[in-house]
Design a protein around this nucleic acid. Structure first.
Lengths: 247, 247
DNA sequence: CGTACGGTTGAATTGGTTCAATCGGGGTGG
DNA sequence: CCACCCCGATTGAACCAATTCAACCGTACG
Protein backbone atom coordinates (compact mmCIF):
# COMPACT_ATOMS: atom_id res chain seq x y z
CA UNK A 1 0.00 0.00 0.00
CA UNK A 2 2.97 2.24 0.64
CA UNK A 3 4.76 1.08 -2.45
CA UNK A 4 3.49 3.92 -4.59
CA UNK A 5 4.95 6.38 -2.13
CA UNK A 6 8.33 4.68 -2.10
CA UNK A 7 8.28 4.44 -5.86
CA UNK A 8 7.72 8.18 -6.09
CA UNK A 9 10.25 8.84 -3.37
CA UNK A 10 12.79 6.80 -5.26
CA UNK A 11 12.12 8.89 -8.33
CA UNK A 12 12.35 12.14 -6.42
CA UNK A 13 15.61 11.10 -4.78
CA UNK A 14 16.84 9.60 -8.05
CA UNK A 15 17.44 6.20 -6.50
CA UNK A 16 17.99 2.92 -8.29
CA UNK A 17 15.44 0.19 -7.66
CA UNK A 18 17.90 -1.53 -5.35
CA UNK A 19 18.47 1.63 -3.34
CA UNK A 20 14.79 2.29 -3.13
CA UNK A 21 14.21 -1.25 -1.90
CA UNK A 22 16.93 -0.76 0.67
CA UNK A 23 15.30 2.39 1.94
CA UNK A 24 11.94 0.67 2.01
CA UNK A 25 13.52 -2.19 3.92
CA UNK A 26 14.66 0.21 6.62
CA UNK A 27 11.13 1.29 7.35
CA UNK A 28 10.14 -1.74 9.34
CA UNK A 29 8.38 -0.09 12.21
CA UNK A 30 5.41 2.06 11.40
CA UNK A 31 3.94 4.40 13.98
CA UNK A 32 0.47 5.92 13.86
CA UNK A 33 0.19 9.40 15.27
CA UNK A 34 -3.08 11.15 16.07
CA UNK A 35 -3.75 14.62 14.76
CA UNK A 36 -2.20 17.40 16.83
CA UNK A 37 0.11 15.05 18.76
CA UNK A 38 3.83 15.68 18.82
CA UNK A 39 5.97 13.19 16.94
CA UNK A 40 9.03 14.54 18.74
CA UNK A 41 9.37 17.54 21.01
CA UNK A 42 12.07 20.16 21.45
CA UNK A 43 14.67 18.91 23.91
CA UNK A 44 14.05 15.24 23.10
CA UNK A 45 16.83 12.92 22.07
CA UNK A 46 14.94 10.65 19.71
CA UNK A 47 16.03 7.07 19.13
CA UNK A 48 14.62 6.91 15.63
CA UNK A 49 14.56 8.84 12.42
CA UNK A 50 11.00 9.38 11.20
CA UNK A 51 9.74 9.43 7.65
CA UNK A 52 6.22 10.63 6.91
CA UNK A 53 4.23 7.98 5.05
CA UNK A 54 0.72 9.38 5.24
CA UNK A 55 -0.76 12.64 6.47
CA UNK A 56 0.75 16.02 7.22
CA UNK A 57 3.12 17.15 9.94
CA UNK A 58 4.90 20.38 10.78
CA UNK A 59 8.08 21.53 12.44
CA UNK A 60 7.45 24.35 14.86
CA UNK A 61 9.00 26.39 17.60
CA UNK A 62 7.33 28.33 20.38
CA UNK A 63 8.89 31.57 21.60
CA UNK A 64 9.21 32.36 25.31
CA UNK A 65 6.29 34.76 24.82
CA UNK A 66 4.13 31.90 23.64
CA UNK A 67 3.93 32.63 19.92
CA UNK A 68 4.12 29.62 17.63
CA UNK A 69 5.98 29.61 14.32
CA UNK A 70 5.82 26.70 11.91
CA UNK A 71 9.14 26.34 10.09
CA UNK A 72 8.27 23.54 7.70
CA UNK A 73 5.37 21.46 6.49
CA UNK A 74 6.12 17.76 6.14
CA UNK A 75 4.19 15.74 3.62
CA UNK A 76 4.46 12.07 2.66
CA UNK A 77 8.01 11.31 1.62
CA UNK A 78 9.59 13.90 3.91
CA UNK A 79 12.06 13.02 6.65
CA UNK A 80 11.26 14.52 10.03
CA UNK A 81 14.53 14.31 11.84
CA UNK A 82 17.38 12.94 9.80
CA UNK A 83 19.60 15.37 11.69
CA UNK A 84 19.41 13.44 14.93
CA UNK A 85 22.05 11.11 13.51
CA UNK A 86 24.49 13.92 14.30
CA UNK A 87 22.72 16.46 16.51
CA UNK A 88 21.43 14.53 19.46
CA UNK A 89 19.02 17.07 20.86
CA UNK A 90 15.97 18.38 19.02
CA UNK A 91 15.98 22.16 18.72
CA UNK A 92 12.35 22.22 17.60
CA UNK A 93 9.21 20.12 17.83
CA UNK A 94 7.37 18.16 15.18
CA UNK A 95 3.62 17.67 15.36
CA UNK A 96 1.21 15.71 13.24
CA UNK A 97 -1.34 18.07 11.71
CA UNK A 98 -3.62 15.28 10.57
CA UNK A 99 -3.66 11.75 11.82
CA UNK A 100 -0.53 10.38 10.22
CA UNK A 101 1.64 7.34 9.82
CA UNK A 102 5.39 7.62 10.07
CA UNK A 103 8.09 5.05 9.46
CA UNK A 104 10.71 4.66 12.17
CA UNK A 105 14.25 4.08 10.98
CA UNK A 106 17.15 3.07 13.18
CA UNK A 107 20.10 5.44 12.66
CA UNK A 108 22.67 2.67 12.93
CA UNK A 109 21.00 0.69 10.19
CA UNK A 110 21.04 3.70 7.91
CA UNK A 111 24.75 3.99 8.53
CA UNK A 112 25.26 0.33 7.65
CA UNK A 113 23.33 0.63 4.41
CA UNK A 114 25.27 3.68 3.44
CA UNK A 115 28.28 1.51 2.70
CA UNK A 116 26.46 -0.98 0.54
CA UNK A 117 24.19 1.62 -1.09
CA UNK A 118 26.19 4.81 -1.54
CA UNK A 119 23.60 6.34 -3.83
CA UNK A 120 21.15 6.19 -1.01
CA UNK A 121 23.47 8.50 0.87
CA UNK A 122 23.29 10.98 -1.96
CA UNK A 123 19.53 10.78 -1.66
CA UNK A 124 19.65 11.56 2.05
CA UNK A 125 21.98 14.49 1.47
CA UNK A 126 19.69 15.66 -1.27
CA UNK A 127 16.67 15.53 1.04
CA UNK A 128 18.53 17.44 3.76
CA UNK A 129 19.87 20.07 1.42
CA UNK A 130 16.57 20.67 -0.31
CA UNK A 131 15.00 21.14 3.11
CA UNK A 132 17.63 23.77 3.72
CA UNK A 133 16.87 25.49 0.43
CA UNK A 134 13.19 25.54 1.34
CA UNK A 135 14.05 27.19 4.65
CA UNK A 136 15.95 29.92 2.82
CA UNK A 137 13.01 30.48 0.57
CA UNK A 138 10.72 30.81 3.59
CA UNK A 139 13.05 33.43 5.04
CA UNK A 140 12.74 35.47 1.88
CA UNK A 141 9.01 34.97 2.02
CA UNK A 142 8.72 36.20 5.60
CA UNK A 143 11.21 38.99 5.25
CA UNK A 144 10.38 40.55 1.93
CA UNK A 145 6.93 39.64 0.71
CA UNK A 146 3.48 41.05 1.48
CA UNK A 147 0.82 38.84 2.99
CA UNK A 148 -0.71 38.22 -0.42
CA UNK A 149 2.54 37.27 -2.11
CA UNK A 150 3.56 35.23 0.89
CA UNK A 151 0.45 33.09 0.93
CA UNK A 152 0.55 32.70 -2.85
CA UNK A 153 4.18 31.58 -2.64
CA UNK A 154 3.50 29.01 0.04
CA UNK A 155 0.65 27.54 -1.95
CA UNK A 156 2.79 27.34 -5.09
CA UNK A 157 5.43 25.47 -3.11
CA UNK A 158 3.03 23.03 -1.49
CA UNK A 159 1.34 22.39 -4.80
CA UNK A 160 4.59 21.50 -6.48
CA UNK A 161 5.82 19.34 -3.61
CA UNK A 162 2.52 17.48 -3.48
CA UNK A 163 2.70 16.94 -7.23
CA UNK A 164 6.23 15.54 -6.93
CA UNK A 165 5.08 12.75 -4.68
CA UNK A 166 2.01 12.09 -6.78
CA UNK A 167 -0.50 13.70 -4.46
CA UNK A 168 -1.85 16.40 -6.76
CA UNK A 169 -4.12 15.79 -9.68
CA UNK A 170 -4.40 18.49 -12.23
CA UNK A 171 -4.24 21.57 -10.08
CA UNK A 172 -6.01 20.15 -7.07
CA UNK A 173 -4.45 18.82 -3.90
CA UNK A 174 -5.47 18.10 -0.36
CA UNK A 175 -4.45 20.87 2.02
CA UNK A 176 -5.60 19.72 5.45
CA UNK A 177 -4.66 22.85 7.38
CA UNK A 178 -6.64 25.27 9.45
CA UNK A 179 -6.24 28.94 8.69
CA UNK A 180 -4.57 29.29 12.06
CA UNK A 181 -1.90 26.76 11.09
CA UNK A 182 -1.40 28.55 7.82
CA UNK A 183 -1.05 31.78 9.77
CA UNK A 184 1.59 30.21 12.01
CA UNK A 185 3.61 29.32 8.95
CA UNK A 186 3.21 32.71 7.30
CA UNK A 187 3.99 34.82 10.35
CA UNK A 188 0.53 36.39 10.15
CA UNK A 189 -2.53 36.44 12.37
CA UNK A 190 -5.37 34.03 11.59
CA UNK A 191 -7.64 36.99 10.87
CA UNK A 192 -5.34 38.46 8.28
CA UNK A 193 -4.70 35.06 6.76
CA UNK A 194 -8.43 34.74 6.29
CA UNK A 195 -8.68 38.07 4.54
CA UNK A 196 -5.68 37.28 2.40
CA UNK A 197 -7.22 33.99 1.31
CA UNK A 198 -10.31 35.89 0.33
CA UNK A 199 -8.22 38.25 -1.73
CA UNK A 200 -6.71 35.32 -3.65
CA UNK A 201 -10.17 33.88 -4.17
CA UNK A 202 -11.50 37.24 -5.30
CA UNK A 203 -8.78 37.37 -7.93
CA UNK A 204 -9.87 33.91 -9.04
CA UNK A 205 -6.42 32.47 -8.47
CA UNK A 206 -7.60 29.61 -6.29
CA UNK A 207 -10.56 27.95 -4.63
CA UNK A 208 -10.54 26.02 -1.38
CA UNK A 209 -13.42 23.60 -0.96
CA UNK A 210 -13.30 21.89 2.40
CA UNK A 211 -9.75 20.54 2.47
CA UNK A 212 -9.15 20.53 -1.24
CA UNK A 213 -7.13 23.35 -2.65
CA UNK A 214 -7.78 24.03 -6.30
CA UNK A 215 -5.45 26.30 -8.17
CA UNK A 216 -7.43 28.12 -10.82
CA UNK A 217 -4.64 29.96 -12.59
CA UNK A 218 -1.22 28.65 -11.75
CA UNK A 219 0.65 30.98 -14.06
CA UNK A 220 -0.87 34.08 -12.52
CA UNK A 221 -0.57 32.68 -9.00
CA UNK A 222 3.15 32.11 -9.52
CA UNK A 223 3.49 35.54 -10.94
CA UNK A 224 1.94 37.32 -7.98
CA UNK A 225 4.01 35.11 -5.67
CA UNK A 226 7.25 35.73 -7.52
CA UNK A 227 7.66 31.97 -7.49
CA UNK A 228 10.76 30.36 -9.00
CA UNK A 229 10.91 26.61 -8.45
CA UNK A 230 14.69 26.39 -8.76
CA UNK A 231 15.11 26.03 -5.00
CA UNK A 232 13.29 22.71 -4.99
CA UNK A 233 16.16 21.24 -7.03
CA UNK A 234 14.28 18.74 -9.09
CA UNK A 235 17.00 18.63 -11.74
CA UNK A 236 19.31 15.58 -11.82
CA UNK A 237 21.79 15.21 -8.99
CA UNK A 238 25.52 15.07 -9.03
CA UNK A 239 27.18 11.93 -7.79
CA UNK A 240 27.70 11.83 -4.07
CA UNK A 241 31.00 13.34 -3.18
CA UNK A 242 30.70 13.50 0.53
CA UNK A 243 30.89 9.90 1.57
CA UNK A 244 28.73 7.91 3.90
CA UNK A 245 26.30 9.05 6.53
CA UNK A 246 28.02 9.07 9.91
CA UNK A 247 27.06 6.43 12.41
CA UNK B 1 48.52 32.53 10.20
CA UNK B 2 45.30 30.68 9.60
CA UNK B 3 46.19 27.99 12.07
CA UNK B 4 44.33 29.58 14.94
CA UNK B 5 41.17 29.52 12.85
CA UNK B 6 41.57 25.87 11.95
CA UNK B 7 42.37 25.03 15.53
CA UNK B 8 39.12 26.67 16.63
CA UNK B 9 37.24 25.10 13.76
CA UNK B 10 38.53 21.71 14.77
CA UNK B 11 37.25 22.31 18.26
CA UNK B 12 33.89 23.52 17.08
CA UNK B 13 33.48 20.54 14.77
CA UNK B 14 34.91 18.19 17.42
CA UNK B 15 37.63 16.92 15.10
CA UNK B 16 40.74 15.00 16.07
CA UNK B 17 44.07 16.64 15.28
CA UNK B 18 44.47 14.35 12.31
CA UNK B 19 41.07 15.24 10.93
CA UNK B 20 41.72 18.91 11.44
CA UNK B 21 45.01 18.62 9.60
CA UNK B 22 43.23 16.80 6.81
CA UNK B 23 40.69 19.59 6.49
CA UNK B 24 43.43 22.16 6.58
CA UNK B 25 45.26 20.22 3.89
CA UNK B 26 42.23 20.49 1.62
CA UNK B 27 42.37 24.25 1.67
CA UNK B 28 45.19 24.63 -0.77
CA UNK B 29 43.84 27.42 -2.91
CA UNK B 30 42.98 30.67 -1.22
CA UNK B 31 40.96 33.32 -2.98
CA UNK B 32 40.75 36.97 -2.03
CA UNK B 33 37.41 38.63 -2.61
CA UNK B 34 36.80 42.36 -2.51
CA UNK B 35 34.00 43.78 -0.41
CA UNK B 36 30.57 43.64 -2.07
CA UNK B 37 31.66 41.19 -4.76
CA UNK B 38 29.79 37.94 -5.25
CA UNK B 39 31.63 34.78 -4.29
CA UNK B 40 29.05 32.76 -6.19
CA UNK B 41 25.83 33.84 -7.80
CA UNK B 42 22.41 32.25 -8.08
CA UNK B 43 22.28 29.98 -11.10
CA UNK B 44 26.03 29.23 -11.01
CA UNK B 45 27.36 25.70 -10.92
CA UNK B 46 30.50 26.25 -8.84
CA UNK B 47 33.51 24.01 -9.19
CA UNK B 48 34.69 24.54 -5.64
CA UNK B 49 33.40 24.52 -2.13
CA UNK B 50 34.31 27.72 -0.30
CA UNK B 51 35.23 28.14 3.35
CA UNK B 52 35.44 31.62 4.84
CA UNK B 53 38.87 32.25 6.37
CA UNK B 54 38.75 36.00 7.00
CA UNK B 55 36.05 38.63 6.72
CA UNK B 56 32.29 38.44 6.50
CA UNK B 57 30.01 37.17 3.74
CA UNK B 58 26.28 36.69 3.35
CA UNK B 59 23.86 34.45 1.51
CA UNK B 60 21.09 36.42 -0.12
CA UNK B 61 18.26 36.20 -2.58
CA UNK B 62 16.63 38.93 -4.61
CA UNK B 63 12.90 38.75 -5.33
CA UNK B 64 11.50 39.49 -8.79
CA UNK B 65 10.36 42.82 -7.39
CA UNK B 66 13.93 43.71 -6.53
CA UNK B 67 13.88 43.33 -2.76
CA UNK B 68 16.95 41.73 -1.20
CA UNK B 69 16.81 39.31 1.71
CA UNK B 70 19.91 38.04 3.46
CA UNK B 71 19.38 34.46 4.64
CA UNK B 72 22.65 33.91 6.48
CA UNK B 73 25.75 35.69 7.66
CA UNK B 74 28.98 33.78 7.10
CA UNK B 75 31.89 34.41 9.40
CA UNK B 76 35.35 32.82 9.51
CA UNK B 77 35.00 29.07 9.80
CA UNK B 78 31.70 28.89 7.90
CA UNK B 79 31.25 26.90 4.71
CA UNK B 80 29.63 28.84 1.89
CA UNK B 81 28.41 26.15 -0.42
CA UNK B 82 28.99 22.65 0.85
CA UNK B 83 25.69 21.75 -0.79
CA UNK B 84 27.05 22.03 -4.31
CA UNK B 85 28.54 18.59 -3.80
CA UNK B 86 24.99 17.31 -4.34
CA UNK B 87 22.90 20.18 -5.68
CA UNK B 88 24.70 21.40 -8.74
CA UNK B 89 22.98 24.71 -9.19
CA UNK B 90 23.07 27.55 -6.69
CA UNK B 91 19.61 28.65 -5.60
CA UNK B 92 20.96 31.81 -3.97
CA UNK B 93 23.96 34.12 -4.16
CA UNK B 94 26.82 34.66 -1.74
CA UNK B 95 28.53 38.01 -1.46
CA UNK B 96 31.52 39.19 0.53
CA UNK B 97 30.41 41.96 2.90
CA UNK B 98 33.96 42.98 3.74
CA UNK B 99 37.07 42.19 1.80
CA UNK B 100 37.50 38.52 2.58
CA UNK B 101 39.64 35.48 2.00
CA UNK B 102 38.05 32.13 1.27
CA UNK B 103 39.59 28.70 0.90
CA UNK B 104 38.64 26.72 -2.18
CA UNK B 105 38.13 23.01 -1.69
CA UNK B 106 37.75 20.47 -4.47
CA UNK B 107 34.62 18.36 -3.92
CA UNK B 108 36.26 15.17 -5.20
CA UNK B 109 39.09 15.50 -2.72
CA UNK B 110 36.62 15.89 0.12
CA UNK B 111 35.02 12.63 -1.00
CA UNK B 112 38.39 10.88 -0.99
CA UNK B 113 39.18 12.05 2.50
CA UNK B 114 35.83 10.92 3.75
CA UNK B 115 36.99 7.33 3.52
CA UNK B 116 40.20 7.85 5.42
CA UNK B 117 38.80 10.45 7.84
CA UNK B 118 35.20 9.48 8.56
CA UNK B 119 34.94 11.82 11.52
CA UNK B 120 35.56 14.68 9.17
CA UNK B 121 32.34 13.70 7.41
CA UNK B 122 30.53 13.95 10.71
CA UNK B 123 31.97 17.42 11.04
CA UNK B 124 30.65 18.42 7.64
CA UNK B 125 27.22 17.04 8.44
CA UNK B 126 27.36 18.91 11.71
CA UNK B 127 28.16 22.17 9.95
CA UNK B 128 25.35 21.66 7.46
CA UNK B 129 22.80 20.71 10.08
CA UNK B 130 23.65 23.59 12.37
CA UNK B 131 23.24 25.93 9.41
CA UNK B 132 19.82 24.45 8.98
CA UNK B 133 18.97 24.99 12.63
CA UNK B 134 20.04 28.60 12.32
CA UNK B 135 17.73 29.03 9.35
CA UNK B 136 14.82 27.72 11.40
CA UNK B 137 15.65 30.15 14.14
CA UNK B 138 15.68 33.01 11.62
CA UNK B 139 12.23 31.97 10.43
CA UNK B 140 10.92 32.22 13.97
CA UNK B 141 12.65 35.57 14.27
CA UNK B 142 11.07 36.97 11.12
CA UNK B 143 7.68 35.44 11.67
CA UNK B 144 7.00 35.99 15.32
CA UNK B 145 9.21 38.65 16.85
CA UNK B 146 8.97 42.44 16.91
CA UNK B 147 11.71 44.54 15.37
CA UNK B 148 13.33 45.06 18.77
CA UNK B 149 13.33 41.39 19.72
CA UNK B 150 14.45 40.44 16.24
CA UNK B 151 17.48 42.68 16.22
CA UNK B 152 18.38 41.67 19.75
CA UNK B 153 18.13 38.01 18.79
CA UNK B 154 20.35 38.40 15.75
CA UNK B 155 22.99 40.18 17.79
CA UNK B 156 22.89 37.47 20.46
CA UNK B 157 23.44 34.87 17.77
CA UNK B 158 26.28 36.67 16.03
CA UNK B 159 27.95 37.34 19.35
CA UNK B 160 27.91 33.69 20.31
CA UNK B 161 29.07 32.49 16.91
CA UNK B 162 31.91 34.99 16.88
CA UNK B 163 32.90 33.88 20.36
CA UNK B 164 32.95 30.23 19.26
CA UNK B 165 35.60 30.91 16.65
CA UNK B 166 37.58 33.10 19.02
CA UNK B 167 36.59 36.43 17.49
CA UNK B 168 34.90 38.03 20.49
CA UNK B 169 36.60 39.37 23.57
CA UNK B 170 34.62 40.30 26.65
CA UNK B 171 31.30 40.89 24.94
CA UNK B 172 32.89 42.93 22.18
CA UNK B 173 33.14 41.80 18.59
CA UNK B 174 33.62 43.29 15.17
CA UNK B 175 30.34 43.69 13.31
CA UNK B 176 31.30 45.13 9.93
CA UNK B 177 27.78 45.62 8.59
CA UNK B 178 25.90 48.66 7.40
CA UNK B 179 22.46 49.25 8.84
CA UNK B 180 21.08 48.52 5.40
CA UNK B 181 22.65 45.04 5.40
CA UNK B 182 21.31 44.46 8.87
CA UNK B 183 17.89 45.54 7.62
CA UNK B 184 18.11 43.08 4.71
CA UNK B 185 18.70 40.28 7.19
CA UNK B 186 15.94 41.36 9.56
CA UNK B 187 13.26 41.92 6.95
CA UNK B 188 13.01 45.58 7.98
CA UNK B 189 13.68 48.90 6.31
CA UNK B 190 17.02 50.62 6.98
CA UNK B 191 15.16 53.49 8.62
CA UNK B 192 13.39 51.29 11.09
CA UNK B 193 16.55 49.31 11.76
CA UNK B 194 18.20 52.56 12.70
CA UNK B 195 15.43 53.45 15.12
CA UNK B 196 15.47 49.97 16.58
CA UNK B 197 19.21 50.16 17.18
CA UNK B 198 18.65 53.42 18.98
CA UNK B 199 16.05 51.77 21.17
CA UNK B 200 18.54 49.07 22.17
CA UNK B 201 21.15 51.72 22.89
CA UNK B 202 18.66 53.75 24.89
CA UNK B 203 18.00 50.70 27.06
CA UNK B 204 21.75 50.41 27.57
CA UNK B 205 21.82 46.89 26.20
CA UNK B 206 24.55 47.56 23.66
CA UNK B 207 26.87 50.14 22.16
CA UNK B 208 28.18 50.22 18.61
CA UNK B 209 31.35 52.22 18.10
CA UNK B 210 32.37 52.27 14.47
CA UNK B 211 32.42 48.60 13.60
CA UNK B 212 32.78 47.27 17.11
CA UNK B 213 29.66 45.95 18.76
CA UNK B 214 29.80 45.99 22.52
CA UNK B 215 27.17 44.14 24.45
CA UNK B 216 26.56 45.97 27.69
CA UNK B 217 24.17 43.60 29.38
CA UNK B 218 24.07 40.21 27.78
CA UNK B 219 21.62 38.70 30.22
CA UNK B 220 19.03 41.38 29.62
CA UNK B 221 19.69 41.40 25.88
CA UNK B 222 19.02 37.68 25.72
CA UNK B 223 15.93 38.14 27.76
CA UNK B 224 14.37 40.72 25.50
CA UNK B 225 15.38 38.62 22.49
CA UNK B 226 13.96 35.42 23.94
CA UNK B 227 17.30 33.87 23.04
CA UNK B 228 17.95 30.18 23.69
CA UNK B 229 21.29 28.99 22.35
CA UNK B 230 20.24 25.36 22.03
CA UNK B 231 19.87 25.66 18.26
CA UNK B 232 23.58 26.31 17.81
CA UNK B 233 24.25 22.78 19.08
CA UNK B 234 27.49 23.41 20.84
CA UNK B 235 27.01 20.46 23.18
CA UNK B 236 29.11 17.38 22.43
CA UNK B 237 28.07 15.30 19.45
CA UNK B 238 26.74 11.79 19.80
CA UNK B 239 30.04 10.02 20.29
CA UNK B 240 28.16 6.84 21.14
CA UNK B 241 27.18 6.43 17.54
CA UNK B 242 30.49 7.42 16.09
CA UNK B 243 32.20 4.12 16.74
CA UNK B 244 34.63 2.36 14.44
CA UNK B 245 33.70 2.74 10.82
CA UNK B 246 33.52 -0.38 8.65
CA UNK B 247 35.55 -0.33 5.48
C1' DC C 1 -30.24 20.36 20.86
C1' DG C 2 -26.46 22.51 22.67
C1' DT C 3 -21.69 23.39 22.22
C1' DA C 4 -17.32 23.90 20.45
C1' DC C 5 -14.35 25.03 16.87
C1' DG C 6 -13.05 27.07 12.55
C1' DG C 7 -14.19 30.63 9.54
C1' DT C 8 -15.83 35.45 8.71
C1' DT C 9 -16.73 40.37 9.48
C1' DG C 10 -16.13 45.20 11.41
C1' DA C 11 -13.76 49.00 13.58
C1' DA C 12 -10.06 50.92 16.08
C1' DT C 13 -5.25 50.76 16.72
C1' DT C 14 -0.31 50.29 15.90
C1' DG C 15 4.21 48.83 14.29
C1' DG C 16 6.65 49.55 10.57
C1' DT C 17 7.04 51.92 5.93
C1' DT C 18 7.72 55.66 2.88
C1' DC C 19 9.51 59.78 1.31
C1' DA C 20 12.29 63.45 1.85
C1' DA C 21 15.54 66.19 4.09
C1' DT C 22 19.68 66.73 7.04
C1' DC C 23 23.84 65.40 9.42
C1' DG C 24 28.61 63.79 9.79
C1' DG C 25 32.93 61.85 8.86
C1' DG C 26 36.45 59.99 5.94
C1' DG C 27 38.64 60.25 1.51
C1' DT C 28 40.07 63.02 -2.59
C1' DG C 29 41.67 66.53 -5.50
C1' DG C 30 43.22 71.12 -5.90
C1' DC D 1 45.70 72.23 4.30
C1' DC D 2 41.24 72.98 3.04
C1' DA D 3 36.94 72.50 0.25
C1' DC D 4 34.18 69.33 -1.64
C1' DC D 5 31.86 65.01 -2.15
C1' DC D 6 29.83 60.73 -1.14
C1' DC D 7 27.89 57.38 1.57
C1' DG D 8 25.89 55.78 5.64
C1' DA D 9 23.47 57.30 9.68
C1' DT D 10 19.74 60.08 11.48
C1' DT D 11 15.38 62.69 11.89
C1' DG D 12 10.47 64.04 10.94
C1' DA D 13 5.86 63.44 9.35
C1' DA D 14 2.38 61.21 6.69
C1' DC D 15 0.77 56.89 5.53
C1' DC D 16 -0.53 51.98 5.31
C1' DA D 17 -0.42 46.98 6.01
C1' DA D 18 -1.33 44.05 9.40
C1' DT D 19 -2.91 43.49 14.28
C1' DT D 20 -6.17 43.50 17.89
C1' DC D 21 -10.40 42.82 19.99
C1' DA D 22 -14.87 41.54 19.76
C1' DA D 23 -18.85 39.78 17.79
C1' DC D 24 -21.22 36.53 14.84
C1' DC D 25 -21.94 32.55 11.60
C1' DG D 26 -22.15 27.72 10.23
C1' DT D 27 -21.64 23.09 10.82
C1' DA D 28 -20.02 18.79 12.64
C1' DC D 29 -20.51 16.15 16.59
C1' DG D 30 -21.71 14.17 21.14
Amino acid sequence: MLEPLFAKLGTVMKLSDADRKALEGLSTHVRRVEALRDITAEGDRPEHVHLVLEGWAARYKVTPTGARQITAFLIPGDFCDLHITVLAEMDHSIAALTSATVAQLVPDRIAELSHTHPHLVTGLWWATLVDEAVLRSWIVNLGRRSALQRLAHLICELHLRMAHVGLAEHDVFRLPLTQEQLADALGLTPVHTNRTLQALRARELLAWHGRDMEILDIARLRQVAGFDANYLHTAPLREARLGPVPR
